[in-house]
């Protein structure tokens, strides 16, 4: 219930008008949105029980490793409700397959659709979504971690919350099933990071400082 309360309201995209190139306009709009989402994500992380008690260096490591996974849980969740084949980055930024292909995000599109299909089939509840998001951060396998015991306790707290929740619904197998979706989430996030790095390095798409710093940490 704490995670449900601290879940930030979805952001809206600010449409970029700086260029006539419609693909570039979409990318600039998307990168601006992601940059602002990152800011919100960092504020959100501090409110997850146990996170602020970690060493500052470990907080940084977890965020640097797990930020894209946490953001993609949100995208996949928002896209569930939308029928059709769109990725819902924001209520006013929905990209279909053709748009993703035109903007160099075909690979990301395919990976995210795969993840979404998995989540959709599982019919995730809001409680599960917010816990999965926090677990993606806690379980990001940051290396090195200065205080592994504290990180372990942080993970245990979230795991226990998930198990308690599923027990209350008499869904004994559900926690394990959710944990088994984490590898696909990791894989999808890696592809997303590669896609944005490629756009920046090879196609010179300008990227805001915070987003670039977080992408570079994963490069």
């Amino acid at each position: 219930s704490h995670l449900l309360l601290t879940e930030p309201a979805p952001l809206a995209a600010n449409q970029d008008n700086s260029t006539n190139d419609s693909s570039l306009r979409i990318l600039l709009t998307l990168c601006d949105l992601l940059n602002r989402e990152l800011l919100v994500l960092i504020g959100w992380a501090k409110q997850i029980p146990g996170f602020s008690g970690l060493l500052l260096v470990d907080q940084m490591s977890l965020l640097q490793s797990g930020w894209m996974e946490a953001l993609l849980v949100g995208v996949a969740w928002r896209s569930q409700g939308a029928g059709g084949d769109e990725l819902v980055f924001a209520g006013n930024l929905r990209l279909d397959e053709a748009q993703c292909r035109a903007t160099g995000l075909a690979d990301l599109y395919e990976a995210l659709r795969h993840l979404m299909a998995k989540y959709r089939a599982m019919k995730l509840s809001p409680e599960e979504v917010v816990t999965l998001k926090a677990m993606a951060l806690a379980n990001s396998d940051a290396d090195p971690v200065d205080c592994p015991d504290s990180v372990q306790r942080f993970q245990d707290g979230l795991h226990e919350a998930l198990q308690d929740y599923e027990s209350s619904r008499r869904e004994q197998r559900r926690a394990g099933r959710l944990l088994m979706t984490l590898p696909l989430l990791r894989q999808t996030a890696d592809r997303a990071v590669q896609a944005f790095l490629r756009l920046h390095r090879h196609h010179r798409v300008p990227i805001h400082k915070l987003l670039l710093e977080m992408l570079d940490a994963k490069a």
Partner: peptide, 15 residues
């Protein structure tokens, strides 16, 4: 750490 100065600063802010 110099490379990750924005994240560092954001985490240090209390709010």
């Amino acid at each position: 750490k110099e490379k990750h100065k924005i994240l560092h600063r954001l985490l240090q802010n209390s709010t």
